[in-house]
Design a protein around this nucleic acid. Structure first.
Length: 672
DNA sequence: CCGCGGAGTGTTTTT
DNA sequence: CACTCCGCGG
């Protein structure tokens, strides 16, 4: 195969630069996936052992896809080691757990587990007792996590992000220590720990030698979204060989809230002197009209990115449409209707996506699609496995996998009638000191006798016993046992149990595919399945895949023929909290840029006027990002859809023209 | 010590 | 508007 034929000059250069540090600045749609794919292939073809190549991506899905594509060129490529920083860290941790002093099973904590653990520590420290205003568990978690991911002290984070909690800096620092000890004692690992431990391990000489002996080539995708810790980790792995390629686009950095430092890209040439820099600017994805719009957005960014995309496919295409609607329902209805139309045109649903800033915006659309029997998958928003009923069911399986998982025991026990925080606390603290699940069952049986109403605990006992007998490999059967056990609890606990039962049925299909409970539990924590998506055969042909509804964040790196970006509303995109921070506003704008550049041939931007903010009717204004003249010039601003169904449109159009400095003036008035 | 009802709060994006 | 926390009655 001749690489020259399928790659342009810069792509070719990137693919054939196999030694030394390499920074690839890849604009949206410029074929960076292609570059990684072919470069993997080139490395292997040149005699590099595939398992000595480490490919870090943003999602495990992305890694799988790139490795699969490279394997089509050369089957040896499927041995390339790939995944997210977190999944790689977890694998390393398991391998070296003993070496670094852990003497028990490691248990990955998801976000809500971590919050729960933190809450327990804070309660134990009596931080809530003495002062009721102490930050809530989710705030605590986010402070501590941000401190780690931004590699800055807790005091700094509080000063910057939560100044109203400044008086608690000491307490939070103390809490962070106690929380760290708490986790170590129990073998709990939260997301941040994975990175912290990975870096710490790589700083250990022996482990560093072992790891770097294995990995001789490192490639990192979406480098603009790595944080300082991840940047350090990358450097450590690549330090003996200097064979590191990173790919990124600082105009697409959208994970600042998670500590992403697009500084990493800028620093890269300093970290790796002699690094080669290659820019990919030809866009192979979108029509020129869509790129004109994207470039117009790029132009308004305060921090100038010295690039501008030009289309390589020579197609001008239609201008993106900007549409206004009266309310959310009409916006949803129009989009659904338009999607219906595209089906009739013969466009596969898999080639269409609806993108939004926050998932709740798509609820009316989901209802509308349901009415029309248009199938869709959702990506982003509340994670499937973090929903209360999913966690409820899984915690029973977790205690079977790891007797010492006190958070799981606590959750399972709290579901029982007649057992509250105190009783659960007493039981769990005893259970985790026991040697076997048998002892735990005995303990529960003994306690059941003492209860005023022993029935609930006896039922739990029964379910645990049956599953224990089944053995860890019967994942599907065990799931069924707990499903039956949990069903009455679910009905009692949630009014909308009939909806939630669907989720559990989906979960059952996913679970049954696993060969062991351990694998399932770990997978769910580190790379959780998305709702619906995993229930389907992974081999489903592209044409048979349904419509995609996704947050812009989750749409990163993907593309569709036809893209709808809905809810372009001031306060939504940019989101209201970002308005007083120049930095966050910039990130919101990059988010819009990412959304626009997902479209190949057709792009629809839309918003609706009738809004609601905590129950109070509001007039939504168009996102400030779409206001500039130079951007509107690239759009086809048709109000036909709005006019067609809204006789009040003129009123809205008028209100929209009136700048809201009146409100501003009133605000000023109160300020003075 | 559990569980219920009322009050209050903050509201997003993800590994 | 949904979730969390607090106070009180059983």
């Amino acid at each position: 195969m001749d690489l020259r034929e399928c790659l342009n000059d810069s792509q070719y250069e990137a693919v054939t630069t196999l030694q030394g540090p390499l920074l690839v600045i890849a604009g949206a749609g410029s074929g960076k996936t292609r570059v990684i794919e072919y470069r993997s292939f080139e490395l292997v073809r040149g005699g590099v052992n595939p398992s000595s190549i480490l490919l870090m991506t943003f999602t495990r899905r992305a890694a799988r896809e790139m490795i699969a594509r490279a394997s089509r060129q050369d089957p040896r490529c499927k041995d390339i080691d790939g995944g997210t920083f977190h999944s790689f860290a977890y694998r390393m941790l398991k391998r070296y757990a003993r070496a670094i002093g852990f003497n028990q099973e490691l248990i990955a904590l998801d976000e809500s587990d971590a919050q729960e653990a933190l809450h327990r520590c804070a309660t134990a420290l009596n931080l809530y007792g003495k002062d009721k205003r102490f930050p809530k568990k989710d705030t605590l978690r986010s402070i501590i996590s941000m401190a780690i991911n931004k590699a800055s002290p807790i005091g700094e984070i509080i000063k910057k992000e939560y100044p109203h909690f400044l008086e608690y800096v000491e307490d939070v620092n103390r809490l962070a220590m106690v929380y760290a000890e708490y986790k170590i004692k129990r073998g709990y690992i939260d997301y941040d720990d994975m990175l912290i431990y990975l870096k710490a391990m790589l700083e250990n000489e022996d482990i560093h030698r072992a790891v770097t002996k294995r990995y001789r080539h490192v490639m990192i995708d979406e480098y603009q979204d790595t944080n300082i810790l991840q940047g350090d980790i990358a450097s450590l792995i690549a330090s003996p060989t200097g064979n590191i390629m990173v790919v990124g686009d600082d105009a697409q950095s959208i994970y600042g809230f998670r500590g992403a430092a697009h500084q990493n890209i800028l620093d890269f040439p300093h970290r790796f002197p002699g690094c080669r820099i290659i820019k990919l600017e030809k866009n192979y994805r979108s029509t020129q009209s869509i790129l004109d719009c994207a470039n117009a957005v790029l132009d308004t960014m305060s921090k100038k990115y010295d690039k501008s995309l030009s289309s390589a496919n020579n197609e001008q295409g239609l201008k993106p449409d900007l549409l206004f609607f009266k309310n959310a329902y009409e916006e949803a209805e129009w989009i659904a209707e338009s999607i219906q139309g595209s089906i009739e045109e013969g466009l596969a649903l898999s080639q269409v996506a609806v993108l939004c800033r926050s998932m709740y915006l798509t609820i009316p659309l989901q209802a509308e699609l349901g009415k029309r029997n248009i199938p869709y998958d959702t990506y982003g928003g509340i994670r499937f496995y973090e929903m209360a009923h999913v966690k409820d069911l899984l915690c029973h399986m977790k205690v079977l996998v790891n007797l010492k998982d006190e958070l799981a025991w606590h959750r399972a026990l709290m579901l029982l009638e007649g057992i509250g925080a105190k009783t659960s606390e007493r039981l769990t603290s005893e259970i985790i000191t026991l040697a076997s699940i048998k002892d735990a069952l005995n303990l529960l049986a003994k306690n059941a006798g003492k209860m005023r109403n022993p029935v609930p605990i006896k039922k739990l006992l029964q379910a645990l016993e049956i599953s224990f007998q089944l053995g860890h490999k019967e994942v599907g059967a065990i799931f069924d046992v707990f499903f039956e056990y949990y069903r009455p609890i679910l009905k009692n606990r949630f009014d909308d149990w009939h909806l939630r039962i669907n989720d559990l049925e989906t979960l059952r299909q996913i679970a049954a595919a696993y060969k062991s409970m351990e694998d399932m539990i770990n997978d769910f924590s580190i790379e959780p399945p998305e709702r619906g998506v995993w229930a389907r055969e992974p081999e489903t042909r592209d044409e048979d895949r349904p419509l995609t509804i996704s947050t812009i964040h989750s749409a990163k790196g993907l593309e569709w023929e036809r893209v709808f970006v809905m809810g372009l509303i001031e306060g939504v995109l940019p989101i209201s909290f970002s308005l007083d921070s120049e930095e966050e506003l910039e990130e919101e704008k990059r988010l819009l840029y990412v959304a626009i550049t997902r479209a190949k041939r057709r792009l629809f931007l839309s918003m609706h006027h009738q809004g609601r903010k905590s129950g109070i009717a509001q007039f939504n204004r168009l996102s400030r990002f779409i206001m500039p003249e130079n951007i509107q010039e690239t759009l086809n601003i048709s109000s036909t859809a709005a006019k067609r169904q809204d006789s009040n449109y003129e009123d809205y159009a008028f209100a929209y023209k009136v700048k809201d400095d009146l409100l501003q003036r009133v605000l000023e008035y109160y300020r003075n």
